[in-house]
Nucleic acid binder design. Sequence first.
DNA 1: GTACTTTTTACACGCCTTGAACCAGGAGTG
DNA 2: CACTCCTGGTTCAAGGCGTGTAAAAAGTAC
Lengths: 401, 401
Amino acid sequence: MSIARRGTVLDLRRGNRSALLRALYFNAPSSRQELGIATGLSPASVSNVVNELLEAGLVVEAGAENSDGGRPRVLLQVNGDYAAVVGIDVGETRVRAELFDVTLGAAFGRVDVALDVDRNANAVELVVRAIVTALDELLTDHPSRPLIGIGISVPGIVEQGDLVRVHGQTIGWDGVPLARLLDRAGVKAPVFIDNGASNLGQAESWFGAGRGARHAIVALIGSGVGASIITDGSRYRGMTSSAGEWGHTPVAVGGRRCRCGARGCLEAYVGAAAVLARYKEANPRRRVDLANEEGELEKLVERAKSDAAARSILDDTALYLGAGIAGLINLFNPERIIIGGWAGLVLGAELMDEIRAAAKAHALREAFAQTSIELCMLGDDAVALGAATLPIERLLSGELA
Amino acid sequence: MSIARRGTVLDLRRGNRSALLRALYFNAPSSRQELGIATGLSPASVSNVVNELLEAGLVVEAGAENSDGGRPRVLLQVNGDYAAVVGIDVGETRVRAELFDVTLGAAFGRVDVALDVDRNANAVELVVRAIVTALDELLTDHPSRPLIGIGISVPGIVEQGDLVRVHGQTIGWDGVPLARLLDRAGVKAPVFIDNGASNLGQAESWFGAGRGARHAIVALIGSGVGASIITDGSRYRGMTSSAGEWGHTPVAVGGRRCRCGARGCLEAYVGAAAVLARYKEANPRRRVDLANEEGELEKLVERAKSDAAARSILDDTALYLGAGIAGLINLFNPERIIIGGWAGLVLGAELMDEIRAAAKAHALREAFAQTSIELCMLGDDAVALGAATLPIERLLSGELA
DNA sequence: GTACTTTTTACACGCCTTGAACCAGGAGTG
DNA sequence: CACTCCTGGTTCAAGGCGTGTAAAAAGTAC
């Protein structure tokens, strides 16, 4: 049913170049031989394509490697200095822009621009101006290489398409054509936009706990709950890119009211906001500062070591989270499940065994046995890094440059 | 991260031929012009590829179509007579084999072989012999065209790979290498095996309510519950092909015990067995013949029109089913959800509005608005047809013939 | 310096798609 | 009935691509 729409012999070339570049990007340094094995190309073609990339400056030699008594293998790697990429994290209180090299291994600089939350009369304009300001500052501070593209992480659902639209319940956006607004505001480089959680998931799958897994799911638990789904090595987006809204999977029909309006959503049990709310309900005397979720959650985890009431809240959280994860395992049969997000890291560090046990109890035996459940390796500040993967992804697929 | 592994210019040709054949298969009859538009190929290449296919006999002309005052367009279609395909449905009490033409539009014949369930001492051998018998009978009755391949639907999880293994809890199979057993038993044609529900879903997505949807999920409700997930036009299989085990998604943590051992699985609420069990628990006086689920479920639906107790069971079923569907919508953002399976058809016919309402209540607004929920169009006896799509799929991808 | 091993390049070959020119088949017009 | 117009389909030279083979390059061991 799916129609390939390949075509000319130039597409073939582009495909091979893309495959080789990808292999090198994620397995640097590599020799020409290894690249040949990884891509299935003949040595002649590898040399051919590599020369093209060397000439373009996208790839550089990186020393040599002994071969058992023969000519040494020349090692190759992607040239970080080829260009720069910007990753932008649009948060609720600030816009953060970071400048990376092409390998995303080094960050040259970072700029934070505060968002004046009080007068969010026209929040969209505010964010656009903050992005432009951050970009200007970043690029004048580091007038380095040519800019290959700008990736932006936003909170909310991003409808990819001809006109990229952002729907964000939290920030009150409804179909904002952010890319066009930035274009009008004078942003020159290509702009790529996606959901922040989704981008963080991609960062984790490229550089973190998901490395090398073709089928992985990054579960992101903050105040709310989301997921980033990697199938067959690339992010699954669904029909209009809003796939991965894991937080509102019903896990207790008729259960707790969720902020989305429904009852029994996973988020209503394992999101940080929900965990704290449940704790407060069970212990009305306790004072819980809901404006400081992060601190309170840590306190709760600490308290659980001696306090049975707190412990019981966390046990339930692990139970629901594990059950939710089991659902993912049954449905997707993934290779790896990665728990992240700031609350995910706090909870995971403490409850990993319980979560695994609950997942095992609710998942089918075969599927569970093939899956490992792990913690995120990148911190929660990798959202900008995740955004920066977007232009790089395009570069690797050979559509840019 | 995913590496393309394309390569030579022959792969290019194969890809284009496959794209054209696919376009023609699902949009017959088509003119060369339409095929050019559908595949993006130039008229010259279309002619070139079409001639190859005509010569091979896989495609035939099918009349002409007036063009507004010019040379008439010659219409083309896939040649059903090119070859035959067998689809086999391994049920719990019988093996059914059906012989189709290449378009799967016509069934030439059908053979049922009963399985002697009592002496399932060596059930595997029994099934293998039944398959061989059915094949022999079918092919001697209809010694027609060359056989292109045999597709087999089995109940249970199928581990695709170098050695295809079948795990079936219901029939007590544990890693049975069915393809190899059939090869040893003298079956000559290429054999393709997959889960029956999954195959039924593919049939529905090719010829039924899923036609034309790139992202669809077929929810199959029988005694148990499963799903077949179509992403980007092709079936999603996960790492080892056991994806789609929707029935054991937790929808009520700590809820009813499921036959899989866990608590609160979707299947424990909406599978036919579970619906009847719930009804019996709520109405201990009623006599419910659990050996005749199909009849009893229909009786229950009938009774619900006047009996509040029965009605309440069905209302709950719709609620849980809708909630489960909402989870799928949130997670996959599909274009279409299709409800099938024998129990799905019975329940769907009666409860469609309630199911839609429950799904709407539990799904996110944007995602729900982009999804339609429909009933299966093919009957439950399309499992063999679904099996037959497997060799055809291979044919269309240009790897066979 | 020689023999040997291994990596990398050079080149002819066959295959592919394309665009442009060209043929085929029908309708309209006078 | 001849001529023109129009659209669908085909032919063919041209330009690209990957492969395999042969040759060159670049080391190590003796």
